[in-house]
Design a protein around this nucleic acid. Structure first.
Lengths: 220, 220
DNA sequence: TCCGGCATCCACCTTTTGATTGATGCCGGT
DNA sequence: ACCGGCATCAATCAAAAGGTGGATGCCGGA
């Protein structure tokens, strides 16, 4: 399915939607679901993050439905940041399959107005789009819960470097290999790991990987 | 979106399709994409694996498009097995987001006729459905490649017990904890691990977890 | 300006893991 | 009946990882 432009004249009060997802089936599904709403107007759908950034610049777009994982290089979160950085930018509603902390935080930091899971029922989807169009934030219940948990917990946020080290641990590297890869001494790697263990409440590298994966701090 | 039955009379030579996916958006998308083909007739779509098994028993279903991961308890692979076990059963085309070895093998063992990724372009999808209707197997190129690799490689299949041990390792347990959990001595756990490392071509527990995860041998 | 978090490093010691070798019993297929 | 794979256990040694207790320099906010 190639990007498609609507040829019908937009109704005056319609909310203009841009769909960005690399799955043709999902684009078609969103289009089918959203077009049943009389006040929605899907003005275009695009298969890449780059095209989304480009197309979102046009004034007929009020809300962008953005996938987070594209097959290509640019991430949905980067595209979101690029779109929301402009003045008078449309609101971005992130719509993704996964609900890992890392993804959610990246999207919110990038300026997303809402965050929904793809398994959301159509009514929830429509409600979120209307909320986004009005500039109100909309979070899926699952996501909201997760964020609550996160706030409640003493925030086990890892520093940039710690995350980097832990990711390499998850990739199966030894401390020696990690130290070479990051141009550090093994002492430093160990030191980072000690801090990571403390923050995650574990006492071994495998347990740290399990905990971080469960909390979405690193990619699997 | 609730399950929907078509009210139009089926065209004589049409291929009857049953869509099974827990995402409303995906069901709508598949419906939209497949209904553009004149020789396809979507006779129903269902949101659960259980309903898929039930509905597939009706004679108007020629091909079932089956998701592998449902929110609920029954797995797509189990539903596939249940459907294909019956005489005169429709062909099942597995359609999923992921391409892990474990998923693929489970689907093939369950009797799936084909295996496609959800990001497949509509033409590929239609071609696969026609192939499935004719009883011919259809694999996405990515999947086919992966299977080739798997055949070529010395088959790193782990035994039941080994998989069990490795899963606990991935959950972050120490050898001592694993031995208690499985009522083994630590010596046995170590022995299993040695075999696992050899099969996976690695030399540490974290690397084994990384390798097994990459090959879909254990659940993340 | 001072403090705290971050990132970097060192030394010493303990515990866990991995490598090697070898042994037993069970089960399924030829 | 035999062989091979699997699961089970043991002992020993070497290597890697974890625990403790430091130290330094940088940077940004109170």
């Amino acid at each position: 399915m190639t990007p498609r432009e609507s040829t019908t004249a937009p109704a005056p009060a319609a909310i203009g939607l841009l769909l960005a997802d690399d799955h043709p089936v999902v684009r078609a599904g969103l289009r089918a679901v959203l077009e049943t709403e009389p006040d929605f107007e899907v003005v275009a759908d695009v298969p890449t993050a780059e095209e989304a950034v480009e197309r979102a610049a046009r004034p007929d777009v009020d809300v962008v439905l953005m996938d987070l994982q594209f097959g290509g290089r640019m991430l949905g979160s980067q595209a979101t940041a690029a779109i929301t950085a402009r003045a008078g930018a449309p609101h971005v509603l992130v719509l993704t399959t996964f609900d890992t902390d890392a993804d959610i935080l990246a999207a919110i930091e990038a300026g997303a107005t809402g965050y929904l899971l793809k398994d959301a029922p159509p009514e929830e989807l429509a409600a979120a789009v209307r909320a986004a169009a009005a500039g109100k934030s909309a979070l899926a219940p699952t996501i909201a819960l997760r964020l609550m948990d996160r706030m409640r917990a003493p925030a086990a946020a890892l520093s940039r470097r710690e995350t980097e080290v832990l990711q390499l641990v998850a990739d199966g590297l030894s401390n020696a290999a990690i130290s070479k890869q990051l141009f550090l001494s093994q002492a430093t790697v160990k030191s980072h790991l000690v801090h990571i263990y403390a923050k995650l409440g574990v006492d071994s590298r495998t347990a740290a990987v399990a905990a971080a994966t469960a909390r979405g701090l690193i990619r699997r």
